[in-house]
Amino acid sequence: MLREIALITEKAFQEVSIELLETEFLPGKRFIIDFPFKVAIIIGITGSATGRLYLECDLETAVKVALIMNFGERLDEPNDVYTYLAEFGNMISGRATTYMTDKFKNKEFRLSPPAIFSGKGLETLSPRIKSKMLYFRGKLGKFFVDIGFEEEHQ
């Protein structure tokens, strides 16, 4: 099930990137985001199973994404970078959970509002979560996505 969820999430990420940012991100091999200042979004998934989607990029990539979402205009406030990236993550999660609901007919998923984290040396641990890591590269930069659910739902 987790492998199928990873493929669904990959599809959702690519679709939303093209529709929203008009740019393509390709899935690929593992990498480490070596930029010191990172931005991370966590969106909780509830309903038939409890999980979460974690989205991470460097600040430079987050700014590029936010500027495109802001129709190429300067951001009103510096913190808009985070709220725009949170909306990007929300759209990916929403699309992914919709596909999950379609795929696993007896399941229904809902989202919780995004939590935003930023800073140097971000590291997250999710002890009870079994997850798949996805890596995307594109013209705007690199994204790391980790989609997972609590172990009893695997």
Binding site: M91, I92, R95, L111
Partner: peptide
């Protein structure tokens, strides 16, 4: 307006 589009 929603990121989710499931029928339920």
């Amino acid at each position: 307006l929603s990121a989710m589009g499931d029928e339920s």
